[in-house]
């Protein structure tokens, strides 16, 4: 097994995903199997190969510095689970 249950708990916490404790072993098994599949990467000779982040080796087009967006707060905040006085509300943020 590539991963153990504790690894899975840590990953879930880092990814902000609540996982039922009872499901952890199954995730551990499934994720380990995926990483077994991923081992296939080692079959390929990648010496001196430059990583490829994009299919097209294109370069960034840049935008002129202009304001093109209008205020759409009302429309956007209709989507919010909780908003008041123009602000999105979340449980208290502790710094």
């Amino acid at each position: 097994m590539v991963l153990n249950d504790e690894d899975v708990r840590n990953i879930a916490r880092l990814a902000r995903l609540q996982i039922d404790e009872a499901d952890i072993p199954l995730y551990t098994t499934e994720l380990s199997r995926v990483f077994d599949l991923v081992e296939q990467l080692d079959e390929v000779n990648i010496r001196d190969i430059i990583p490829m982040a994009h299919p097209a080796d294109a370069v960034q087009r840049l935008r002129t510095d202009e304001v093109t967006e209008q205020n759409q707060r009302e429309k956007f905040q209709k989507l919010a689970p909780m908003a008041e006085s123009g602000l999105y509300l979340v449980p208290k943020v502790i710094e």
């Binding site: 902000r16 609540q18 989507l79 919010a80 689970p81 909780m82 979340v90 449980p91 943020v93 502790i94």
Partner: peptide, 20 residues
């Protein structure tokens, strides 16, 4: 993440709970 759109769980006890 349940902040600006989409699903938010019922009665989150704190921020971490809301995310998870």
């Amino acid at each position: 993440d349940g902040v600006r759109f989409g699903y938010r769980c019922e009665h989150p006890k704190d921020l971490a709970d809301m995310y998870a």
